[in-house]
């Protein structure tokens, strides 16, 4: 019985400490790699093109009917707005919002 109490205490400590360690995220400098990576992942956009192609990347600019951005591989893409069936912005942030 005592072993069970110790085990529970250990498991609760594990959850709470993991939570607190993860919470350190907010105390990291804004330009730290972890924050940049998480921010980038949450900010990712997806372009579904009329050709059936899907482009995963980050949209930088949308002007005069053109969509300009960069892909994960570091390539720059430019598409007409009319070539895009749908633009899913901030995909993972939207998912995160639905999941929490």
């Amino acid at each position: 019985m005592r072993d069970l109490i110790y085990l529970k205490a250990l498991l609760i400590s594990f959850i709470v400490s993991t939570f607190l360690i993860s919470g350190l995220y907010f105390f990291l400098p804004f330009n730290s790699q972890v924050r940049q990576n998480i921010g980038k992942a949450l900010d990712m956009d997806v372009l579904y093109l009329t050709s059936g192609e899907t482009v995963h990347g980050w949209i930088w600019d949308e002007k005069e009917g053109m969509v300009v951005g960069g892909t994960k591989e570091g390539k720059i893409f430019t598409h007409r707005r009319s070539e895009c069936v749908y633009i899913h912005r901030n995909v993972f942030l939207q998912y995160l919002r639905q999941m929490i």
Binding site: F19, F26, L96, R97, I100
Partner: peptide
């Protein structure tokens, strides 16, 4: 529950800071 609270904090942070309230 723990991950949800953490994810909630991260989401709120990005919504209010990075996206300057442009996201709901």
């Amino acid at each position: 529950a723990s991950w949800r609270i953490l994810a909630y904090a991260i989401h709120s942070y990005y919504v209010s800071r990075q996206f300057a309230g442009t996201l709901p």
